[in-house]
Amino acid sequence: MEVVLALVIGVLGGAGVWLILRPRTFQVVMGLVLLSYAVNLFIFSMGSLVIDRPPIVTPGHAASLEHYSDPMPQALVLTAIVIGFATTALFLVVLLASRGFSGTDHVDGVRGDP
């Protein structure tokens, strides 16, 4: 499982970086979304990969990391997901405004290389 997850994080991150370096604003926004998936998974994996042990305290199980998955990265990622949505929305609108303002969807606001 670890290999698969690491590979997946790599692929998502690589695809995100590739898109960020593209000249079109839409590509850059998509790249940021993909990159945020990679980063969220990465932070999430800082805890430990466990199956069927959600961090919901149930009677009969001592409240320790042996019985539950790590709640801290989860709390951080939950925040990150919502903030990620907000930034994506902002970027998208800046993209649209820039496109309306400059007449092109190139990241520099001028018709550049294809």
């Binding site: 994080i9 690589g14 998974l41 990465f42």
Partner: peptide, 8 residues
């Protein structure tokens, strides 16, 4: 991407 994968 490879760096991220190795690191994680």
């Amino acid at each position: 991407g490879s760096g991220l994968a190795v690191l994680s």
